[in-house]
Design a protein around this nucleic acid. Structure first.
Lengths: 204, 204, 204, 204
DNA sequence: TATGAATGAGCCTTCATTCAT
DNA sequence: GATGAATGAAGGCTCATTCAT
């Protein structure tokens, strides 16, 4: 009896917390860490200022939670798409495609993850920065596997994985800022080709 | 009539202005626009708060000046290095090498230009964002020329120029954050190879 | 020899001081005590900021000097005009006419004396306030004399002298603010009539 | 949902708002717009600086509120007293008496309205200056009516209404500054007599 | 003496956080 | 728990005054 009640309460708590996070994400995307005041977040979430502090220890905690959540979303999207492929390069392609699609669907996720976070270096603590690099790490694993399997020639995969990710990030940032390239999916395919060539893959 | 603006006095004034800029650049690199308060800038520059306003109309003017200065430094370095080459691809390579070398020499320039500025979208006005994209534009010109001269196959140079720049940016950011790759110049050469292959250049 | 030199120097000093005062008067008239910064006064006077402090101990001293000067001008104008008359009421009329004419000629004197100063109660010290009331005192003397000579019935000349001056001040303030009455001299004559009747003078 | 805006709470809020206004009025009376800093107002009101901004959008809003309030008080006092009379001249007399009595009761209202505001020309916007002239307008209406009803001879009521108000203002200012005349109500009656004669009213 | 750069206290305002209700 | 008023440190900026030249 007691247990169920607690669960229900917990659910309500979680719902509120995620409402706050959603509000903060929107504000963070359109303004910045400093532009998103607690008061404005609370207002957008439909709660009182003080209530915010019942769900998050302070402003920093909120934004840590946001990054965590985003990271989970991203990883989730990637993992799901990857599971459909066996070949390392295909998995890699699938990963990037998953990212691009997610970013198209949730632009503020993109804006925050690609634009806002990198500059928040010192604001968000270092752990977050590591999280942010995760994509590179994932990429590197795929590349290493591909090399091992003879799909790619020997190379410094540390560098090439960074380069690989960098191409996508730059295109996405450009798209966020200028709306160009207008057809992001087509650009994505160009990018894949570019990178596969760069990696030395045998493309027919 | 006794207070003459002698060369000596003027020199001291200029020195002070650049001392302020230097202080602000350091703070901007390690914190952010908001983290670099006028008071902290003044303190770091060894002057009183009010003195700051003798050299810059307001905070925004200071940071505009910083971006201008940095942009000039960057363009200067690039132009100098490019003039040594004729071939479009060589010029492009030289450009990137110039950037990398400058960023190695002046790390806070790198940090601000690569990390801070992109997020300052709304703080610094749009002109500055354009400035920031300049490197992509320069790259695109080189690529177009290379395609025209048959050095590269036909391609969407809008996308590939962004990709090209993105690889460098990502590697540099990683290096700034983690100190890796330790040998940035070697990484640079890997990157060049990666991109040339990606572009479809004939590398023997 | 030395004496003459000193005189000349003194003259130059005085000239500068009065140049500063003139500048300050203009600024004081169009802005306010706080609006007239030392820097702006110095600039308008064509000197350096620091130079100001060679002629005036501080901002307060400057404005004291201004009031003194204005008071002298006012008293000078009044005295000159009064000397042409014998009858107390005529002298009084002449006094007010002198004031009105002076204020027409020098509007910023009017603005400062009638509008700015009264509010500076606490800024300018009390002596200045006394100066400002001087006109009432002069008027009272005339009224007392007129009563004594049977030109006016017995009355509380303390009150009536204040009332008398008040009518002029209010009309002048209205004129300064709104530009009305457009014909100030005609209004002046109406006012004289109003006040003479109010005083109980025999007007045919 | 527990924090209810009960009557008690609301009362406390209202009390605080008026406490702030009261504090500001006192400071404004003894100093000036610039002398009354938000910090000093807050201190005098017994609140923290930041709290001030929960009650007023900014400094200007506070002083606008003050002027509005004072104007309401003044108009209220006048209207109430006027309603007891029918004759235009009696209504006019009643108006002035109401003013004088109010000013006696609330000296800082007097100080601000008579002394501070006139000089604040540019600080408080023009609407406020209009408010300030309202008394003259009211007076003019009464005079026009009195002329129409044959209580007063034909005259330039624009000038005489200004003169009329001016006598009261000057006496009140003198009283505020010097404490004389000590018996303000008696002075008031002298003034009424003075002005009625000035206006050409038939006084027995 | 004249200059104008330098100073720093002080102003208005914002905002993360706390606390009485 | 929920509320929103209260807090006060901190930010950007101005300006009377001083001081090295």
């Amino acid at each position: 009896m007691v247990y169920r009640k607690t669960a229900k309460v917990q659910e309500k708590l979680d719902e509120r917390a995620s409402k706050i996070i959603r509000a903060a994400r929107e504000l963070l995307a359109e303004k910045s860490y400093h532009g998103a005041s607690i008061k404005s977040v609370a207002k957008k979430a439909g709660i009182a200022t003080g209530t915010f502090y019942l769900y998050f220890r302070n402003k920093e905690a909120l934004f840590n939670a946001i990054v965590d959540e985003m990271y989970a979303e991203l990883l989730n999207a990637i993992t799901k798409e990857r599971s459909k492929h066996n070949n390392a390069l295909d998995k890699l392609k699938a990963s990037m495609e998953a990212c691009v699609k997610l970013f198209i669907k949730e632009q503020h996720l993109a804006k925050i993850l690609l634009v806002q976070i990198p500059s928040a270096n010192t604001l968000f603590n270092n752990i977050l920065t590591e999280i942010e690099d995760e994509l590179v790490v994932l990429t590197k694993k795929d590349l290493d596997e591909a090399v091992e399997n003879g799909l790619l020639p020997e190379q410094d995969t540390f560098i090439t994985s960074i380069a690989f990710v960098g191409t996508f990030r730059e295109v996405l940032i450009t798209w966020l800022r200028r709306g160009e390239p207008s057809d992001l999916m087509q650009a994505f395919h160009s990018l894949v080709r570019y990178n596969l060539r760069g990696l030395g893959a045998q493309t027919e």
